[in-house]
Design a protein around this nucleic acid. Structure first.
Lengths: 265, 265
DNA sequence: CGCCGGTTTGAGTCCATTCAAGAGGAGTGG
DNA sequence: CCACTCCTCTTGAATGGACTCAAACCGGCG
C-alpha cells in the first residue's frame, strides 16, 4: 500500500537483464509446464526459450501489478508465491487467485488494456518479466504456443469458478479443507514437495481473505480441523494427516485443476 | 436433472444442419463481438463465418453440457440465456457464470478434455454447435482469431474473479446490486436493450444460486432495494430507477467486464 | 527487555438461514 | 367456468454460523 508504481520501483533497481539461454533458462520452467499438458513442436519450444525477459526479485508484500495499471510486461513466477486480489468497498480484501512457481502472473496484461485486479507477492519471489508484445508475437507465430497460453488461461478460469462455488456454497470447514487440498496438489504439481506436507505461506489473515472469512474464524476452523485429526500444524507448515477425510470434508475433486489433461487440436 | 445425455437427446432431433452463409450466418454474431474488441484480418473473418456448425434449439432448463462430459462441440449462444453451475456436497448449487447471446458457452471443451461444470439453458435458447476441432484449427491457422478466442477466455476469467469477490466479501444488498448492474451492462452490450430496463430471466431461486444466498433472502433483498427506490420490479422485468445509487450500493465498476477494450499485438 | 505482528480465546451480536405457512398466477382437466 | 395442481413469490418467527470487539498470549527481533 505504498502507492508507488511497482514498475517504477523495479526500474530503479540494477537492471540485471539476462537473455535466455536454452539449457538452464528460467523460461524452461514455463516450457516444462506447457509440456506436461500439450505437445509443442520444436520451433515453438525454441521460441519459448528465446523469449526476451528480465529477472527481478521482489520482497514479500510487494505489488507486481495494481488494479488500473497498464503494464507492458507479463511476469512468470519463478520462485515464491503470489496472489491476485481485489479490494471491495469498505476496504476489505478478497484474494481471487493464488500462484505457485511456473504460473504466469498476468497473461491478461498481454491482451487486455487495463489490469482489473492487484497482484502481490506473498513471499519473497523471483520473476521473469516478459514484454507483452513478445508473448503475443509468440502466440501468433507458433500456434502450439498460443494454444498452450490459451490453455493456461482456461485452467485459471476453471479454478476461479471453483472458488466461486467454494465461497458461495460451502461452510467455513469445507471451504478451508477445500483450499488446503487445492494447495497441496498445486504445490506438488509445481514440483515443490508432496501433497501430504507443505508450507502454507499465508498468515491466517491472508487465508481469511482467500476464504472470504475473518481471521478469527480461520483460526477456529484450523484448530477444529486439527482437533478432528484431519491436519497437523506447526508454524505455517501443514501436514495432512488424513487425505481422504480432508478431501471429503472439503468436497474436493481435483478435476477442475486439469493437472495433466489436455487434448490435441 | 433428467439424467439423459443432452447430446444423445440432441442427436435424436431432426438434424437441421446448415452450412454457414457469409451474409446472415448465425456466426456473424460471434464475428460482430470479436470485431468490437480486436482487429481481425479479412482471412480470419472469412474463416470464422465459414466455421461448420449445426443449429439447435433447447427448451428452458435443458443441459448443454454436464460435468464429466467429453463434448465434441462448442456451443455459441445465439438467443436466450444460459448459465454455468456446480453442485456441491449436500446438493446445493452455485451458478458460476451467466451467458448472454453471442457468448461461447464452452470454449473450454475445445481444449480441455473433461467438462468441469454444468451448462444449462435458463430460457429457451438457440445454439450453434461448432465441432471443437474446427475451433482449434481456426485458432491455429488464423492468429487474429486465436487471439480473439483467447481474449474471450480472459474476460470470462475476469468476470469469474469478480464473482469470487462479490460472493466472498459483499453482503446481500451489495451482492444483489452488483449482479443487477453487471446484467444490465452485459445485456446492453449484447444488443438486447438498454441498461435501465431489462428482463431478468431467473427465478429468485436461481438468483439465489448466483449470489450464494437462499431464495428467501433474495426475496427480502430485492424488496428492500425496491423500497429504497433503487429499482422497480414487475414480474421478472427489472427497472433500474437510480443507476448511480445502485452502482454505489453494489460497489460496481465495469472495468472487469472489459466491454470495449483490447490492445493490439 | 520490550516491542510488534501474528495467533489464540471468550462473550455478545447480527446477518442470513431454516422452517413453516400462505398468497398469487399459469396451466390443466373436468 | 371453476376446481385443482404446481411453481414461484412473499412473509413471519426462531435459529445459528460467522462476525465484532476485546484481551491475552507467543515468538522473533532490534
Amino acid at each position: 500500500m505504498d502507492g508507488t508504481n511497482p514498475y517504477a520501483m523495479a526500474a530503479s533497481l540494477p537492471p540485471d537483464d539476462k537473455r535466455a539461454m536454452p539449457a538452464d533458462s528460467p523460461l524452461s520452467l514455463l516450457l516444462r509446464k506447457f509440456d506436461r499438458r500439450a505437445a509443442l513442436d520444436d520451433a515453438a519450444r525454441a521460441a519459448i526459450l528465446a523469449l526476451p525477459h528480465t529477472l527481478r526479485r521482489l520482497d514479500a508484500g510487494r505489488y507486481v501489478v495494481r488494479e488500473g495499471d497498464r503494464p507492458e510486461t507479463c511476469a512468470l513466477l519463478l520462485s515464491g508465491f503470489a496472489c491476485r486480489h481485489k479490494i471491495v468497498a469498505g476496504g476489505s480484501r478478497q484474494v481471487v487467485g493464488l500462484q505457485v512457481p511456473g504460473d504466469l502472473l498476468d497473461v491478461h496484461n498481454a491482451v487486455l488494456e487495463i489490469a482489473d485486479h492487484n497482484i502481490q507477492a506473498l513471499t519473497e519471489a523471483e520473476l521473469a518479466l516478459i514484454p507483452r508484445t513478445a508473448l503475443t508475437t509468440l502466440a501468433a507465430e507458433h500456434p502450439a504456443a498460443g494454444r498452450a497460453l490459451w490453455l493456461e488461461t482456461l485452467i485459471e478460469g476453471s479454478i476461479a469458478r471453483e472458488w466461486v462455488a467454494n465461497v458461495g456454497r460451502r461452510d467455513s470447514r469445507a471451504r478451508m479443507a477445500h483450499v488446503l487440498c487445492e494447495f497441496a496438489l498445486r504445490q506438488e504439481a509445481a514440483g515443490l514437495g508432496d501433497r501430504h506436507k507443505y508450507d502454507l505461506p499465508l498468515t491466517q489473515e491472508q487465508l481469511a481473505d482467500v476464504l472470504g472469512l475473518t481471521s478469527v474464524h480461520v483460526n477456529r476452523t484450523l484448530k477444529s480441523l486439527e482437533a478432528e485429526g484431519l491436519i497437523d500444524r506447526f508454524k505455517r507448515s501443514v501436514t495432512i494427516v488424513d487425505w481422504g477425510k480432508l478431501q471429503e470434508a472439503g468436497d474436493f475433486d481435483s478435476l477442475y485443476l486439469h493437472l495433466a489433461v489436455a487434448r490435441q487440436g
